[in-house]
Amino acid sequence: MLRRTFIQAAASALIAVGLSWSAHAEDRFITVASTTSTQDSGLFNVLLPAFTAKTGITVKVIAQGTGQALDTARRGDADVVFVHAKAQELKFLADGFGVKRYPVMYNDFVVVGPKSDPAGIGGSKDVAAAFKAIADKKAPFVSRGDKSGTNTAELNLWKAAGVDLQAVRGDWYREIGQGMGATLNTANAMAAYTLSDRGTWIAFANKGDLGIVVEGDKKLFNQYGVMLVNPAKIPTVKVNDGQAFIDWLVSPEGQAVIAGYHIGDKQLFFPNANDPNA
């Protein structure tokens, strides 16, 4: 008797939970594969509610590195990609997985490091020279090591500095294979240098002894782009709602929300959808 009551209670609880979830699933939503920087910086917390209020479309964000986000889209598990590594984005387009790339906004990368500044690069505006100094002194450096947009930018900077990473890498160069926030935590704990996008850096709450050592070089420019996944390749893509999100992002209204996102008095992202070369 007791057993039967228990089984009935458990079964009805299961059904109730199942029903509430299927009700959830009927909502109008799109899935966006994006980057850890847009999430960790807090931008999505203001951007997405504004879009949902306007259109009634819920946006589900999977925050990954740019490489992984593009891969998620290639598998057909996302409708839109919103990432920041132009070369990888153009390859995604060339492979036929994207419909069209729209520039959305930019910020910049900064080199952060410990106050002790063992490579002596504090205040420099020449990021290539700074990277060269880090490699020469074998000062600790934490790399994302995850094919993200930031990781891609970092590898390009080593190239620009004329440093052959494979030849000189040693204990001082640590690839941790994690997101931007985790990388900053590690850099803080190890008193190491790292490259971060400015948005995540400003929003990051565990700066400890870290500070910006290099900023303002043109090479540190960080452009974000958005693409609809090509329905010709992935038939399940939600074309209308996905395109609605993109259209809104590049519209004056979406661009204004991006420009309006501040932490303290600092603006984190700068809209530039009207720049065709971005």
Binding site: H24, D40, N45, K60, G179, M180, N185, N188, F204, K207
Partner: peptide, 21 residues
Amino acid sequence: GNIAGFTRTMTTSIALETSKG
């Protein structure tokens, strides 16, 4: 996927907040 308000649980929130510092 740790989607806010949809698949974000206690443990994935802890992982996320740690990564935000």
